[in-house]
């Protein structure tokens, strides 16, 4: 699938984190093909969508960044990844990133995409696998920790 179906998610991630939390993500310019599975850096969120095609956005970040985002956006001092408000912050960011990206895809290519609710999870040594579907990943860095996104479309990127 064409790069134009992946790129809006990179742009949207950078823009929205900047707008909501006032921090710049360095990197996250280009996307590389992902081989197999992804080791979570701490807190992960998955949003799937379906329309004329089906796909998925995975946003993964280090715990320090997740806590920083929750604390900055909500103005509280959270210290625990399992706190519902921390997890909800990450899932709401993913929701807004995906909403923005698929809005632009819907308007440009009439894809009629709709979002499933966000899934968010945290734990030790998590590995995420996306069977039978080609995906592209992009890494970014912030002062408070790393972030990466992975975009997958059924029908692949070949």
């Amino acid at each position: 699938m064409d790069k134009k179906f992946y790129q809006p998610f990179c742009r949207s991630t950078k823009d929205i984190i900047k707008e909501m939390a006032g921090i710049e993500i360095e990197g996250m310019e280009s996307m590389e093909e992902e081989e197999g599975e992804i080791s979570s850096m701490g807190v992960s969120s998955i949003i799937t969508f379906a329309g004329t095609r089906k796909g998925r956005l995975l946003v993964d970040m280090e715990l320090g960044l997740a806590l920083y985002l929750a604390n900055t956006i909500l103005g509280e001092a959270y210290t625990d990844a399992m706190d519902r408000m921390v997890l909800s912050t990450v899932s709401e960011i993913n929701n807004i990133v995906s909403g923005n990206a698929i809005t632009s895809l819907n308007n440009s290519y009439s894809m009629d995409l709709r979002l499933a609710p966000p899934v968010v999870f945290t734990g030790q040594d998590m590995v995420i696998s996306i069977p039978k579907i080609n995906s592209l990943s992009s890494q970014g860095y912030t002062e408070y920790g790393k972030i990466s996104i992975n975009v997958a479309w059924e029908g692949g990127n070949k």
């Binding site: 992960s44 379906a50 399992m82 899932s91 499933a116 590995v127 995420i128 997958a152």
Partner: peptide, 20 residues
């Protein structure tokens, strides 16, 4: 309804929120 692509998460002791 339509279904979306599955993802598989490996790891013991994982905390999930899948719905509001």
């Amino acid at each position: 309804v339509d279904i979306t692509p599955p993802s598989i998460v490996f790891g013991q002791d994982v905390y999930f929120i899948i719905s509001s």
